[in-house]
């Protein structure tokens, strides 16, 4: 009896670790389709979030670091874009898919529902949409490898 319980627990633990590895496959640094930004996806609790960690053009026309000037909330318009959380609330749904999250587009200050699908180890299909997935657009993100200095 004890051996059976122990076996089941080891099996469950093993499965849990594999599932966790699948869920965490999204972690890392990704470049957006336009190549204008890189986003680091981290885990926060049991959710996955993403921050802007690099901008191709980090400064505005006055040479100052870009801020979130298009945010509908006036209080947030002074917040620097570098370090900004643009992906929020993603949960692993299995089958290489993360959903229930949102994506923020600093270009226009809009937040969209979003689903992320990993098509291979280095590629994410990031689909932002309005209401239903049909009314959306998919941006393909590529994993970037940070060079060790």
């Amino acid at each position: 009896m004890k051996k059976s319980v122990l076996f089941l627990m080891i099996l469950f633990t093993g499965l849990n670790l594999f599932a966790q590895a699948d869920a965490d496959a999204i972690l890392g640094v990704w470049e957006t389709g336009s190549g204008k930004a890189r986003v680091k996806i981290d885990k926060s609790g049991d959710k996955y979030v993403g921050r802007i960690v690099w901008l191709r053009e980090p400064n505005d026309e006055n040479g100052k670091p870009k801020v979130d000037k298009n945010n509908p909330d006036a209080n947030l318009r002074v917040k620097p874009l570098l370090g900004y959380s643009m992906l929020k609330g993603f949960e692993f749904a299995g089958n290489k898919k993360w959903d229930n999250g949102t994506i923020y587009d600093p270009e226009n200050g809009s937040t969209y529902s979003c689903t992320i699908t990993m098509t291979d180890n280095n590629t994410l299909d990031v689909r932002g949409y309005i209401g239903v997935s049909l009314f959306g657009r998919t941006d393909v993100w590529k994993r970037v490898v940070v060079k060790k200095s």
């Binding site: 890189r38 680091k40 926060s44 609790g45 921050r51 590529k142 970037v144 490898v145 940070v146």
Partner: peptide
């Protein structure tokens, strides 16, 4: 309880020197 990534101080300059996988 992992810290909110926003709360972390991070040196972003390291992400400039990167290439596509």
């Amino acid at each position: 309880q992992e810290p909110e990534p926003d709360d972390e101080e991070e040196d972003f300059s390291m992400y400039a020197d990167a290439e596509l996988a």
